[in-house]
Each structure stands twice: as structure tokens, then as C-alpha cells.
Simulated scan of single mutants.
Amino acid sequence: MNKPIIVKTKNLTKMHGTVKSVNKVDLYVPEGEIYGFLGPNGAGKTTTIKMLLGLIKPSEGDIQVFGKNIRKSRSAILQNTGSLVESPSYYGHLTGLENMLVMKRLRNVPMKNVDEAFRIVRLDKQKDKKVNQYSLGMKQRLGMAMALLSFPKLLILDEPTNGLDPAGIGEMRQLIKSLPSRYGITVLLSSHLLSEIELMATSVGIINEGKLLYQGSMDDLREKRRSTIRLKTEDNIDAQQLLGSHGYRLSQEASRITFENNGDQEVARINKLLIDNDIMVTRIEEKKLSLEDIFLELTGKEKSL
């Protein structure tokens, strides 16, 4: 059974002068998913998120959240939406608790939500300290607590691990992964960090230069991670001629002969064929496409994230 779509856009476009920073993007974020919005810095992720929250107006296209049009029902949508975009907003001269109490009044939520949000982000022992004395990571976690304060149906996070040390990144990752099952929260998570998206997301959208290049489940994306076998022999030229004469499609990569991995039995047959013809095999390696490899294939560019 198909899940309800929480966020849906059609032909979403944002112009800056003559440049389309977001170009006809059709997003589909299913309920209960962690949707990883992946792309390099400047790809259009933050601009898209700001349009979803009604912070900036699209040049073209439509946005629906919870089945409602953002132009007509922004207030009702935001009541059920939490967000952490770019850097968290706070009053530095106030304590973490005082900041949360300001948000509590704005959100009209019970005090137990404040206590639970502090506990979730592990700031409960630092809540009486002034935010100006917080580290960058603590400020990021306070922003996360504010976003969670009403325990919304939809949580939109823009680079939420910024400023966190490795332990903090791990904690944030576990927290985000628990939100759909524990609290029924759908998460839209943007990042340029491939490893974080791969570890957290259940579905993914890849954007570059304002265009959505791929959208689907993380499992479907992983299926694109085909593997190749790389061989090194004592005589690669003779090895290539021999294997080519037996119908194998090969390519050369530095000092390795490469071919598509068709299973262990096929690799064993190739190894035996070479040895039977007195060509010694000195190394056999499997290379699997990473998520970054797939990204580079999709964009057609050698562009680092």
C-alpha cells in the first residue's frame, strides 16, 4: 500500500535574476520516511526548503504540505511543522531554558514538551547556562530541541550535523533515525554529506544546479551500486588478449584489468583460465560504486561534495 505524500511540489522554480537556482523540481516525501535531500553546496537545497516553509516565494510551481497549498494554508501547515534551517535562532543573553520557554509560548505547548525536548538532545544538564556560553554543537542541539518542541508531523532539517563533533554527529544520527517510529515524525533532511544521508535516509532526492536528478528509495539507489572486478597479472597484455578471445568485455584501469562482476563462479572461471594458460594472477579485487560514484555519474561531473 502506497504511503500518503506529506510534501509534494510540482515544477517548483526559483529565479535569481536570469538564473534558476531551483529548476522545475517535483518532490515527493512519503509519510514516515527520512527523506535525504542530497547535493553539493549551492545546489538549491536551502532555497527549496525555504520555499517549503513559506519563507520565500517560488517564481513558479506549486507546493502542497499535508495536502494543503502553502500559499493558502501556511499557518495551519507550520503548526504541524518543525524546522532547523541554516543556523539556529536564539537569544544569546538568555539561558537555554529561557529560550525554550519563549518558544513554548509561541508554540502553545505544555512544559513536559520542553523537558522531553531537552532530554532528547541531551541538553537537560546545560539548560540553565546562557546560550552565549554554549559551544557551536550545543547551539545546534538547542536548535534541534526548538524544532522538536511541538513534536510536529513534519521535521525539516538543513545540515543538522553542522558544528557537531564525531560523537555528537553519531547521537544526532541516532536521534533522527528514531523519530519516525518513536514519534511518528516524517523527516526531510538536507545534507552535502553523502555518508550521513546513506546512514540515515530511507528515501533520497539528489539535486544539482537546481535540478532534481534522482528521486526514490535508498534501496533502489543502492541497487545502482554495481560492482566490478579488478585483476592484476604478471602479463596484463596477454591476459587481456586471452580473455577477450573468450568473449569477456574488459577495460584497463591503471595496472588493473577490469570487468563487470557477474558472480563468484564467473570470477573463479576467469582466474582458472588465466592460470591454465600460464598467466599468474597476483591480485583480485572487487570495487563497488559508492554513493558518490553514483552522484558523479548522474551529474556527469567530477565535482566533489
Rank of each mutant, 00 (worst) to 15 (best):
219 D>G: 08
293 D>I: 05
96 G>F: 08
47 T>I: 02
20 K>G: 01
232 K>C: 11
290 S>R: 04
71 R>H: 08
273 L>K: 13
238 D>L: 06
69 N>L: 01
67 G>A: 01
21 S>N: 14
277 N>W: 12
135 S>E: 03
152 P>D: 06
240 Q>I: 11
201 A>E: 05
122 R>S: 14
34 I>G: 02
268 A>L: 14
180 P>Q: 01
288 K>M: 09
52 L>K: 03
97 L>T: 08
254 A>G: 07
145 A>W: 00
298 L>N: 07
184 G>I: 08
58 P>F: 03
175 L>V: 08
118 F>C: 07
111 M>H: 03
69 N>C: 07
227 S>D: 12
302 E>Q: 15
160 P>R: 00
124 D>Q: 15
239 A>W: 00
22 V>G: 02
183 Y>P: 11
11 N>D: 13
194 L>W: 12
213 L>V: 03
86 E>C: 00
289 L>M: 13
286 E>N: 04
94 L>P: 01
219 D>R: 07
165 D>M: 02
267 V>E: 08
238 D>E: 05
254 A>P: 04
91 Y>T: 09
166 P>R: 09
28 Y>I: 09
160 P>T: 13
87 S>T: 15
81 T>V: 15
58 P>G: 00
301 K>A: 04
47 T>G: 10
42 G>S: 14
79 Q>T: 15
137 G>N: 08
10 K>I: 05
237 I>A: 14
41 N>T: 11
